[in-house]
Design a protein around this nucleic acid. Structure first.
Length: 560
RNA sequence: GGCGCAUUGGUCAAGAGGUUAAGACGUCGCCCUCUCACGGCGGAAUCUGGGGUUCGAUUCCCCAAUGCGCUACCA
């Protein structure tokens, strides 16, 4: 039996030949320099900041260069499948403005290079595995789980690298042993389960200096020195489904991916991929191995955490807190490209598309996720979003994540006015960070959430009732900001408080306090807290009735 | 254990064989100010360690330490 006969025995027929597949998925007709990237999530439904981080690289690279960005579902592991995961992935990414040109969508596949779901591509993988079989570059392996662990034990005892490679699977050299050949033949005919392994060409267990290497270009890390692979990695599992390694090589070639963006955890298996590309006679894509995004631990603060299964890193967490997608995007870009912040500072209004994103500017060491920085970026990002737009966005957020805030959205114009407080001044306020924080920030406007949180300042506590009465008597809702504050100054002086804080600081013995203390009393009666934006503006939004009502109520409370 | 990747202030980082080692976030102080926020000014704080190479290294090389990852018929 020769290689060809073995291949035929395993796969009696294929609907298409490798050449036909090549013709079905021809090189893309794209302008010079256009990059084709892809995102290949497995359908666990768990999307975290790290996925988004990588997805941004793909998206920017493709769309900036006039290329294509597609979504491929990598569901070769049936144990991982989670119901509705694909929908979740698509909608989460869309929420953060990651849009695909082709691939899997909610309404089926879009694009000429599909099918874009790996579990639907079994026949394609088997065809190319058959080609490797024919060429003697792969072999069927019947080693059982028990046999494999025995091998491992022996290898560990002998201090050798564990794994199946030259010398450890008799099936590898079946053509040199008639009895093995007969066994393979019989077992295949009997329908015994087996895997297909790559027949690696590297030399096992030699020192690092002695192994030969390939130079592989990595757009982030420069030139990588990749040793020859000597592991007979499984390429087709017992189920007939490929492993990641094989699917990656076949798909990214046939889908004509030019840039493979993936996490650095893939670096150790690069030798396998390089060998596979070589065996199949295909050109290597340009790899972009990104650094891991990590997070500051909640316990201490500077511990690096693995991104793996850390619910705090879940995209849904930031979404439910109500971080605006534009803010998250902005933040991610600042850690993705070190020169982004500088560029943004120079032009706060420029659209993201104007920024020239480059892989060279990406760091090869992992960054800690910094919530402080996200918050800061978010503040300035929200400043550039229209209040009415923001209000609408908040309402959508509330519907999805926080229905308890329904009352906030009864009057959208009023809400927009609240959000807009002080945002158009020469030095705009930056109060708004994320939805939950905003709900708290404006909570005093609503009777549903208004509570007195702070206490009167010591200097004016005793006069609180008097201050409020005087304030109510002179209050005129149509006063402008200047007239209104002039009245407070007068009121302050009348009651023995300095009209200016400086006067009080100079001669504290002459006054009970200053106008700031008096204002604090009013502020607390109206807002329940001692810190807030401009009082006059707030009153204008609240309306005269609410203002008078709250002051009256507080006077009553004080007299009891 | 083996292999791989990484290592500039608390965090993100620029940077070059000779620099006062940028900038941002955070932090501290002052100013502005009816509070807060914004803004302005200023401060504290960094090249993981040890060997080389060199007139000179934080920058180049080696080793170590530390962190992260891989070591599956998971991706």
């Amino acid at each position: 039996m020769n290689n060809k006969e073995l291949a035929h025995l395993i796969y009696p027929s294929h609907p298409h030949t490798p050449e036909e597949y090549e013709a079905m998925y021809p090189a893309r007709d794209l302008p010079e320099g256009a990059m084709v990237t892809r995102l290949g999530p497995s359908p666990t439904g768990f999307i975290h900041l790290g996925n988004l981080y990588g997805a941004f690289v793909d998206e920017r690279l493709a769309h900036q260069s006039g290329g294509k960005f597609f979504l491929r579902i990598e569901d070769t592991d049936d144990k991982r499948f989670v119901e509705n995961a694909v929908e979740t992935i698509i909608s989460s990414l869309a929420f953060f403005d990651i849009n695909f040109d082709e691939g899997v969508t909610e309404n089926g596949d879009v694009g000429e290079y599909g099918d874009y779901t790996q579990s639907h591509r079994g026949e394609i993988y088997r065809t190319f595995a058959g080609k490797l079989l024919e060429e003697g570059l792969a072999y069927p392996c019947f080693l059982s789980e028990e046999e494999i662990s025995e091998v491992r034990e022996q290898q560990e005892a002998a201090k050798l690298t564990p794994g199946i490679y030259a010398g450890w699977s008799k099936y590898r050299d079946w053509d040199k042993d008639k009895s093995v050949e007969e066994e393979i033949c019989a077992r295949i005919k009997a329908g015994d389960p087996f895997v297909i392994r790559l027949k690696s060409k590297g030399v096992p267990n030699v020192s690092a200096e002695e192994t030969s290497r390939h130079i592989v270009k990595d757009a982030i890390r420069g030139e990588l020195s990749v040793p020859d692979n000597f592991q007979d990695t499984v390429i087709i599992k017992q189920t007939g489904i490929p492993t990641y390694h094989f699917a990656h090589v076949v798909d990214d070639h046939l889908m004509r991916t030019t840039h493979v963006v993936r996490g650095e955890e893939w670096l150790p298996s690069l030798p396998i991929h390089v060998e596979l590309f070589e065996d199949l006679g295909w050109e290597l894509p340009i790899y972009c191995h990104t650094a891991q995004l990590m997070k500051i631990g909640e316990d201490g603060n500077k511990r690096k955490l693995s991104k793996r299964k850390d619910p705090e890193l879940s995209l849904d967490y930031y979404r439910s807190q109500g971080y605006h997608p534009a803010a998250v995007r902005e933040y991610l870009l600042t850690i993705l490209n070190s020169n982004y912040e500088e560029w943004r500072a120079a032009d706060p209004e420029a659209p993201i598309d104007d920024f020239k994103f480059t892989t060279e500017k990406m760091s090869s060491s992992g960054a800690l996720f910094d919530l402080n920085k996200l918050n800061d970026v978010s503040k300035s990002t929200l400043l550039h979003i229209e209040a009415s737009e923001l209000a609408a966005w908040l309402r959508k957020w509330s519907e999805d994540y926080a229905p308890e805030f329904e009352y906030v959205f009864k009057d959208m114009d009023k809400l927009a006015a609240m959000l807009d407080m002080g945002r158009h001044d020469a030095r705009p306020r930056a109060d708004l960070v994320y939805a939950r924080q905003i709900m708290d920030f404006i909570s005093y406007f609503f009777d549903e959430s208004f509570t007195i949180e702070d206490e009167y300042p010591q200097e004016a506590a005793a006069d609180a009732a008097a201050i409020l009465k005087a304030y109510l008597d002179t209050y005129d809702h149509s006063d402008d900001n200047g007239q209104w504050f002039e009245k407070i100054r007068t009121l302050s002086t009348d009651l023995g408080y300095a009209a200016k804080p400086k006067d009080f600081k100079k001669h504290p013995e002459e006054y009970k306090g200053h106008v700031g203390h008096v204002s604090a009393v009013i502020r607390i009666a109206l807002m329940g807290r001692s810190n807030s934006p401009d009082l006059w503006t707030i009153q204008q939004i609240m309306g005269e009735d609410v203002v008078r009502d709250r002051i009256k109520r507080e006077i009553e409370k004080l007299s009891n």
